[in-house]
Design a protein around this nucleic acid. Structure first.
Lengths: 188, 188
DNA sequence: CCCAACATGAACAGATCGGTTAATGTTTTC
DNA sequence: GAAAACATTAACCGATCTGTTCATGTTGGG
């Protein structure tokens, strides 16, 4: 039971869940798509919930690493990095196979706030908020927390709209709206 | 098979789906909660999908009627009505049992863009957009479509965050952000 | 009052759900 | 090279899934 084998299963399960949804993807399908028997699956993960939680942990790590890096690359100043989030979103939306945010989906299928899957999805959003708040502070915002919350509202809205809305360019709309918000937030 | 009986089933099924999710609520549960036998259920709706589509139609009608009315009551001018949307959102979020937007949930469980359930959810968002665009035009916005899209980004973001985020007041954040956007949109 | 039309419940399909068991490889270790 | 440890497979478990069948009410019209 190598650790990397488990990681590989989680990685592949992530794709299966993302494409099919959590309830719709059964353990039989997951085992088949990862090229492993169901028994092996249950050697690595005691329950389906445990597998889902592992998938969400990996997704959180992958997504935040990618996003923070892109924001850093795109913007020089803190304010530019904040706006850069929306450019990064645009890149993500343009990927083929884009189907929205895994955590929003998870919270839609596991709605109870004290469900571990819901709680872990909320934690991901909280970590994103912390990062945005720190950047907003560095950017000199008069109310960094409020600014961070507002920019994240635009981000979540764009994520949903990119999957559910007409096919325009929500990332660009969000970025222009963000600029307007930055202007009234004491950020130069 | 009175028409009102069918409506009553759809009405009750709406609540069951909203609380449990679409995959998680089976036809047995739906029949039990509507106080009707499964056979009767299938007399009124040929498949589960047909029931879901009927539920979404009802929800669309209920939600838009309610929202448009509240926006009208809250604001006198078109610009005030636009901002009033966020007050209405705040009222909705505060309802006990709030679990997010039914159409976002539906699109999360039925992801394919050509799935009828996904398509109907998208249609709801499109109708909302039309209304907002008309109001934005009446309000004198320089680019009414863009303004409508941006305000709706804030709305979708707030809806998601009210369910998944920390428990602050996303409707109020969204409203203040919307004010900033209105200012740069040629709306007095 | 009788018969047709409709509504109902219970039982049943066949498939799939999450999860387990027991028997069979395949390594690793001494 | 034998024995212990680990991985894998296929078959199975009871529950639940969407959807159907059939036998029994129940109701309204002539």
């Amino acid at each position: 039971m190598s650790a990397s084998k488990r990681d590989e299963l989680v990685q592949k399960a992530l794709g299966v869940f993302y494409r099919n949804g959590f309830h719709a993807a059964g353990m039989d399908l997951l085992a088949a798509e990862t090229g492993v028997s169901k028994t092996s699956m249950y050697k690595h993960f005691r329950t389906k919930e445990e597998l889902i939680l592992a998938v969400l942990r990996l997704r959180d790590e992958q997504f935040r690493n990618w996003l923070y890096r892109r924001m850093d690359e795109i913007g020089d100043s803190p304010a530019e990095k904040l706006l850069g989030m929306f450019d990064a979103m645009g890149e993500w939306f343009a990927e083929k196979g884009y189907r929205g945010c895994m955590f929003i989906k998870a919270s839609a299928e596991y709605q109870d706030r004290d469900d571990p899957i819901h709680a872990q999805s909320a934690e991901h959003k909280r970590l994103l908020f912390n990062h945005m708040r720190d950047l907003a502070q560095d950017a000199g915002a008069s109310e960094p927390e409020k600014l961070a919350r507002q920019l994240l509202l635009l981000k979540e809205g764009a994520i949903v709209t990119a999957h559910l809305g007409h096919t325009d360019d929500p990332a660009s709309d969000a970025k222009m709206a963000a600029s307007a918000i930055l202007k009234v937030s004491g950020v130069k």
